[in-house]
């Protein structure tokens, strides 16, 4: 709006029949305004509208072609008495289902995602520095931190998934550990230790290592530290969703994607 009115008026030829009405006066000097507004501005029609139309057309064609080529799955009628093995959530929640295998259901499925989304929503209020808008990675440090965090998160999570799959992994180790023999610990408290406390500690330790390493290696600004954490969040989302989708077979055992059970293969033959 602020950009539109004055520039539309100056765009009029001097002999224009109609004049623009002054609709609004807005004080200048906002963050999104550059020093020389006129020079690098273009008309939305046709420059932007054309790009939008092309993007919509391309994706409509791609979507139609894929929809002709690949059949949506449809299995047999829903039957509450017959549980398929494995039962999987939709792919975009398989990251949560993956966490489920390693910790308490509420911690994996409610507390962690709730906390993560809440923290993501508060990012603008944690990073109060108004500079660095409008470009990918305005600082070299930020870019390095992003790459480091992405690699670190991927390696740590793949490593943890493999480790927890072994005899000496936390889940099996904790199951063998007799917390009940400790003073003041009953069965309930032992379960809380196994499925809430230890997994939370493991998560916090690995986030802590990320934060400490980033601070030690780069002396980051708040923004750059948030880049490390947000990257860890986004990469976790995709890495765990891929593991849950492509590498979990019968009874949620680790398998290679080509060894997945038939019911999980894409493009199934039509039923009946």
């Amino acid at each position: 709006m602020t950009a539109g009115i004055p520039s539309a008026r100056t765009a009029l030829p001097p002999d224009a029949q109609k004049t623009q009405k002054l609709l609004d006066l807005v004080k200048g000097d906002r963050y999104a305004r550059s020093e020389a507004p006129e020079r690098d501005e273009v008309l939305v029609w046709p420059h932007l509208v054309v790009i939008e139309a092309i993007a919509a057309a391309v994706f409509l064609v791609v979507l139609t072609v894929v929809s002709i080529a690949v059949r949506s799955p449809l299995e047999s009628l829903a039957n509450p008495a017959q549980t398929p093995n494995p039962s999987k959530a939709p792919w975009y929640f398989l990251n949560l289902q993956e966490l489920l295998l390693h910790m308490n259901v509420a911690l994996a499925g409610v507390v962690l995602p709730g906390l993560a989304l809440t923290l993501v929503a508060t990012i603008p209020y944690l990073d109060r520095d108004p500079t660095g808008v409008g470009r990918y990675f305005p600082t070299t440090k930020g870019k390095q931190i992003c790459i480091f965090s992405a690699l670190y998160t991927t390696i740590v999570e793949v490593g943890l998934v493999f480790w927890d799959n072994t005899y000496w992994g936390p889940t099996q180790l904790l199951a063998r550990t007799n917390f009940e023999s400790l003073p003041l610990v009953d069965t309930n408290k032992a379960t809380i230790i196994r499925s809430w406390i230890i997994p939370s500690i493991i998560i916090l330790v690995f986030i802590g290592i990320l934060v400490v390493t980033t601070i030690a290696a780069w002396k980051p600004t708040t923004r750059e530290l948030i880049i490390a954490l947000f990257t860890a969040f986004a990469v976790s989302y995709w890495v765990l969703a891929i593991i849950g989708t492509g590498f979990r077979g019968e009874s949620q055992h680790l398998v290679w994607p080509w060894n997945l059970p038939d019911i999980l293969k894409p493009n199934p033959p039509p039923v009946g």
Binding site: P73, L74, E75, S76, L77, A78, N79, P80, Q82, T83, P84, S87, K88, A89, P90, F93, L96, Q97, L100, N104, V105, A106, A108, G109, V110
Partner: peptide, 18 residues
């Protein structure tokens, strides 16, 4: 309302139940 949808949603709502 096939097996895929019923059990995917069962997994999801069991998480919510926790």
């Amino acid at each position: 309302w096939d097996q895929l949808s019923l059990w995917a949603v069962t997994v999801g709502t069991n998480i919510a139940a926790a």
